[in-house]
């Protein structure tokens, strides 16, 4: 079954917060190595969809499959927790506000999870951290604390922290939205590098140029539905849906 099933397979995802339906019957597939961008105005459900994939916001209805395993399968509570914890180790997530652990050095931010969950020794974890931090250009700051870093540096450490778990899928929720404009590029470069290494990624972003340059496919979401999806050339240059055009027009006006 896993052979012909998509790597990420979201089937009829539905989510309500109380009476408010935030995701309305969303289906979406991502193949291994693909990079999918999600755009849409604030409140359209982008974060909720992303957070459903690693069960931070569990769905109210529908199924999510990752690499042949159902994420939100019915299990008794304890088994479900174990299942989700194991699954989350395979899915890296990067947040808008970095969420680095402020009481830990950059090194310990990266080594904590591998040591705790994969039983790496101090030495092995250190080597791993150095490798990952080097990858995002933060090796020189390994002994710093988060409070001593710029936003762009924090986000690069957050990416290294996620990568240290060797995830097979990376989720980015507006990774550059909280950054000063001059710090956006350094984070984008890291993400581009990941793209070149064929990491499977789902990227929620407000940066249309960036989405156009790295994504294989772009989804436009509005009010809990996927209005339109396609290759970036089509979505950004020739969208078929009036709502997509409207959004892009407003976005360009807002940006300039």
């Amino acid at each position: 079954m896993a052979q012909n099933q998509p790597f990420v397979d979201i089937r009829h995802a539905q989510k309500s917060f109380g009476k408010v339906e935030v995701l309305k019957d969303i289906s979406l597939t991502v193949e291994r190595g693909q990079i999918v961008g999600i755009i849409g105005s604030s409140g359209s459900g982008k974060s909720t969809l992303l957070r459903a994939i690693n069960d931070l916001d569990p769905l109210s209805g529908g199924e999510i499959w990752l690499d042949g395993v159902q994420v939100n399968k019915k299990l008794p509570h304890r088994q479900y927790e174990a299942h989700i914890n194991a699954l989350r180790q395979q899915v890296g997530m990067v947040f808008q506000h970095f969420n680095l652990f402020p009481h830990l050095s950059v090194r310990d931010n990266v080594t904590m999870a591998p040591m705790l969950l994969k039983n790496l020794s101090r030495a092995e974890a250190n080597r791993l951290a150095e490798e990952q931090l080097d990858h995002v250009g933060m090796l020189e700051r390994i002994e710093y604390y988060p409070s001593q870093l710029s936003g762009g540096q924090k986000q690069r450490v957050a990416i290294a922290r996620a990568l240290a778990m060797k995830p097979k899928l990376m989720l980015f929720d507006e990774a550059t939205s909280a950054l000063d404009p001059e710090l956006v590029e350094e984070v984008n470069l890291v993400m581009k590098k990941l793209a070149e290494q064929h990491m499977t990624m789902i990227i929620v972003t407000h940066e249309m140029d960036f989405a156009a340059s790295v994504c294989d496919r772009v989804l436009f979401m509005d009010k809990g539905v996927v209005v339109e999806e396609g290759p970036p050339q089509v979505i950004f240059k020739n969208p078929t849906q009036p709502r997509t055009r409207e959004f892009l027009r407003k976005h360009i006006e807002g940006a300039s």
């Binding site: 931070l56 927790e81 194991a86 680095l100 652990f101 705790l116 778990m165």
Partner: peptide, 21 residues
């Protein structure tokens, strides 16, 4: 900050581990 628990859980830590660490 709630994001601290979320970041820890996202890495695969259990709730107990996230609280402790």
């Amino acid at each position: 900050d709630r994001g601290q628990m979320e970041a820890a859980r996202t890495l695969g830590l259990s709730r107990g581990q996230a609280l402790r660490k």
